[in-house]
Nucleic acid binder design. Structure first.
Length: 123
DNA sequence: TGCTTGACATGCT
DNA sequence: AAGCATGCCAAGC
């Protein structure tokens, strides 16, 4: 007998779990912003939380390197491994300009592209 | 339960 | 263009 209701349903999964699930789906050579992840996770404006979460999984196997800020730059410079993050992204084919920023319009990934069956707006 | 912290975002100077 | 201050929301204590 169902004496115990489901503790958590997928929809009510912790904000953190949703963000991590999205990050895990970012394809190589693409990036997502903190604000975008927060919005997709169901909480627009919780961008800071996304960064906080990433800090707890930085040693995980998640492609944390593909999460950057809305300015197209990494936010890990003050943490001491900004160069490492950029290096990982460059290795995936992402280019940074003199201001250490990449072209978000071209590299920002959207989950819908997965269902669309291909890249959209590339070229 | 309530206060403080943050890998951000946005606006203004 | 770059720096400073404020707003946001979830997690930790």
């Amino acid at each position: 007998m169902p004496d115990t209701a489901p503790p958590v349903s997928p929809d009510s999964a912790p904000f953190r779990a949703r963000v991590l699930a999205l990050v895990e789906r970012i394809p190589a050579g693409r990036v997502m912003t903190y604000g975008q992840l927060a919005t997709l996770a169901g909480s627009p404006g919780a961008a800071r939380q996304v960064g906080y979460i990433m800090n707890t999984v930085a040693e995980s196997e998640l492609p944390w390197q593909r999460v950057i800020n809305a300015q197209g730059a990494v936010s890990t410079d003050k943490l001491g491994f900004g160069d490492i993050q950029r290096g990982l992204l460059v290795a995936e084919g992402i280019a940074f300009d003199a201001s250490l920023r990449c072209d978000l319009k071209r590299l920002q990934w959207w989950p819908d592209e997965e269902e669309a069956g291909g890249q959209t707006g590339l070229f």
